[in-house]
Design a protein around this nucleic acid. Structure first.
Lengths: 211, 211
DNA sequence: GTCTATATTCAGATAGAC
DNA sequence: GTCTATCTGAATATAGAC
């Protein structure tokens, strides 16, 4: 039980990597074990030495993906100075979530993209883990609100859903090199804390022309 | 060519309705023609009288879905008084998008959920239509920014993506009866225009206790 | 227009050789 | 541990009867 990696461990990891990548790209049902095996450099039948079924494989991919965001966000909080502002706490959480999602993690983005496609039974097995992650955000936002850093008249559940949506949707459009992850996080935090609106001058009904 | 509906038209519509509903629920690959046929009250083979293939069917579902949001948002703008504020213009657009998505439209929500799963060829056929819808939002936001209603130092492309993400993700969590669509739209607009942050008092480093 | 029957294709899974 | 070969089931699509 040291950090030695048996041949089995190595193959297993290669399969998981290939699976996460393929599931993320093609979705659950459209991904075949043949494809995964090929990407992992072996034959389809060989997968069954490591995993009992396609669903067992997808479950582990989902599990790893969720664990990684969860840990990343949790660590972002622990790394902060104890006297950090609540805005900073939320800001680093947003950055951690986005970075995990977009930077190098096929597992996390696979989780987000295909969770809605997997068989009901697989989904059931992950509800607990999803809830735990939701709970982490709930705590962060609730503390911020109680402390007076967030408006007290908003439904934090709704805010959380809208925030997660904005962040998670990035897996559908983000392309490395076009915008930095930091810029995305900055825009998200600006919207969340201050909004991007400006008071409009009162107008008298005419269609004004703007230079 | 009046509004008469032939038997064929009626069956076709029933098939499309059943397809939109099933695709939305189960995703693209996991939905079988057998299921769709059953939901439409016929045998799988009969579908081929109306559609040449599964992909032809999905293309029409995607097409209808996108057309409906597009029209809904466009009409929301046309219905507004000419002297409406830019905030109001954005607000009704948000409401129209969300309402179409969540109220009665399996087509639109199917479009959002499965677009990422369909074969590349099908996706290609819809890029133009998707671009047209993006362009509609781009115009709305750009006019608002130019008029001074939105901060000039933000990347509107990013804002649009984050906004669409927050709205579209609602298909994953929205449940009728729990929160009203109007409340969701209100929260979204509040975040977008004003944010939900409150200036935090300057603190001196200690962990303060809050009553 | 819709049915029944079926051809075809292909994926998930198993068995035994190496 | 991985391979090859294969079973089994299921889904798209076609053909011809009604």
């Amino acid at each position: 039980m040291t950090s030695e990696q048996s041949k089995s461990d190595i193959s297993r990891a290669r399969i998981l990597d290939a699976a996460a990548k393929t599931f993320r790209q093609k979705g659950y049902a459209a991904t075949t074990l043949i494809e995964i095996a090929k990407a992992a450099g072996m034959q389809a039948g060989s997968l069954y030495y490591h995993f009992g079924s396609k669903d067992e494989l997808i479950e582990e991919v989902l599990d790893i993906g969720m664990r990684r965001v969860h840990e990343a966000v949790e660590e972002s909080q622990e790394r902060l100075p104890a006297d950090s502002s609540y805005r900073d706490r939320i800001r680093v959480a947003v950055e951690a979530h986005l970075t995990t999602l977009l930077k190098h993690d096929d597992y996390t983005s696979a989780n987000i993209r295909i969770f809605g496609q997997v068989p009901e039974e697989v989904r059931q097995h992950h509800i607990r883990q999803r809830d735990a992650y939701a709970e982490l955000w709930r705590r962060i936002l609730t503390k911020a609100q109680k402390s007076g850093a967030l408006r007290s008249d908003v439904d934090l559940g709704l805010v959380r859903m809208l925030l997660m949506g904005a962040l998670n949707w990035s897996v559908e459009w983000y392309q490395p090199g076009r915008t930095s992850i930091q810029t995305i996080a900055d825009h998200m935090c600006l919207m969340l804390f201050s909004g991007i609106g400006i008071e409009e001058p009162i107008r008298s009904g005419e269609n004004e022309t703007v230079a």
